[in-house]
Amino acid sequence: MPQEKLDFLQGTLDLLVLQTLVTMGPRHGYGIARRIEQVGADALILNQGTIYAALVRLQQGKLIKAEWGRSENNRKAKFYEITARGRKRLVTEAENWQRVAGVVHRILEADNTPSFP
């Protein structure tokens, strides 16, 4: 799957965005960016603008869908919402992540114990 070969960070960001939309429901770009900052994941992104590349990527893959609506200050804003395909993707990607993270964690742990004199 080409998606798997995507840049590591890109994949991470996409995963974050999908997870955000699942937990928070439909959101606009700024809302998603704030949420990512709140959970302390802003270390993963260069700046807030990077979010929009992830959003267009996900939208083109029909993992999320977008609609223009009214934001809390009554301005026109583009709201993003996760699709069924997005949820499915999130589940598989999250599993992948956890598996990889587990492996990496084990390796790092093992390396910490000096086995070589």
Binding site: G29, Y30, R34, Q48, N73, R75, K76, K78
Partner: peptide, 16 residues
């Protein structure tokens, strides 16, 4: 469309 989205983003951030 993207310009509008960015404008909204800036507006929200400025307000905050």
């Amino acid at each position: 469309e993207f310009d509008a989205e960015l404008a909204h983003h800036l507006e929200m951030q400025t307000a905050d």
